[in-house]
């Protein structure tokens, strides 16, 4: 092969590969522009302040009202319940696996926990609606068939492996020397863990928590199936609520014609969802980078 032809092939291949990498940029641009165009159209009819601060969400009713706060409240409520399960349980699991568990236990448990993260969310929805809710109703008679509590708990279990595996990475990142120094001073495992290892891994663990929050906010099927479809500004976990994601699915299931205001609401809600998860992801990445630099 002549040098000219060979160099030509090299150049073409490099450009093709660069284009592949560029597709990912196009995806981001695509997401932003699709959301922005429809959201802009939406805001020509509904003022941003009415959208962001209104307390009634009835865009599909005859009496239309476009206050997104009930959806935000539903999302935060379910996510808070999920975090209340996933963060402590995930962190304890990580501490157990990295500091206490024998190597054989770790080898068996870790892949099994990964299975939890691989179960499709529609399956968790089924489980929340038909197993957890009836179970909880035996203890909490006031619990409705659709509620925030049950999907929140199940979502917590779903994101637990993510929290535990990221926290475990953070715990592993703490230099062995720090641990040995504590043991050398006569500290127990528990003292070493809570006073030395956990504080040292704090930024890494926070990164895990924030990523978990982002995942919880964006989770769709569990809440669509088990939380109900009633936008309600409440902090009561026993009654039906609707999250931002569930609303998007609800509208998509119906036959809402493109170009209508109701159709545009899902993009406006999507934009809000995208911006909030994006911020959380950025914060999580930033914390993780910082953790890495501390112990590089």
């Amino acid at each position: 092969m002549s040098r000219r032809r060979r160099d030509f092939v090299e150049r073409v291949v490099e450009w093709a590969l660069r284009a592949c990498a560029g597709v990912s940029i196009l995806v981001t641009l695509g997401i932003v522009s699709v959301l922005a165009v429809e959201t802009f159209q939406f805001f020509r009819e509904v003022s941003p302040s009415e959208f962001l601060f209104g307390t009634v969400w009835t865009p599909l009713f005859f009496q239309k009202s476009f206050g997104v706060l009930p959806l935000v409240a539903g999302t935060l409520l379910v996510s808070a319940i999920a975090m209340a399960v996933a963060v402590p349980a995930g962190l304890l699991t990580a501490v157990y696996l990295s500091e206490y568990a024998p190597a054989t236990v770790r080898r068996v448990v870790k892949p099994v926990l990964e299975v939890l993260a691989g179960v499709p969310t529609v399956v968790y929805g089924y489980f929340a609606l038909l197993f957890v809710t009836p179970l909880l109703q035996q203890v909490l008679p006031g619990l409705s068939g659709f509620n925030a509590l049950s999907p929140g708990l199940v979502m917590g279990i779903m994101i637990l492996p993510m929290v535990s595996s990221l926290s475990e990475d953070a715990l592993h990142g703490v230099p062995r020397g720090l641990r040995e120094a504590a043991y050398a001073l006569g500290a127990t495992k528990m003292q070493t863990t809570t006073r030395v290892v956990l504080p040292a891994a704090l930024s890494g663990i926070s990164a895990a928590g924030i990523l978990a929050a982002s995942r919880a906010i964006g989770e769709t099927m569990i809440v669509t199936i088990a939380a109900g479809q009633q936008p309600r500004l409440t902090a009561n976990p026993l009654v039906p609520v609707e999250t931002m994601t569930a609303y998007i699915v609800q509208v998509s299931l119906g036959d809402t014609p493109a170009g209508t205001l109701a159709y545009r609401t899902i993009f406006a809600v999507g934009m809000l969802l995208f911006v909030s998860t994006f911020m959380l992801n950025l914060a999580s990445n930033w914390l993780r980078e910082r953790f890495r630099e501390e112990y590089a």
Binding site: V27, I31, V34, L35, G218, I248, G270, L282
Partner: peptide, 16 residues
């Protein structure tokens, strides 16, 4: 960042 975008947002992208 894309890896952290909720899947339902990809649905909106696909729709649009």
């Amino acid at each position: 960042n894309l890896a952290g975008v909720p899947s339902v947002i990809y649905g909106l992208l696909g729709l649009g």
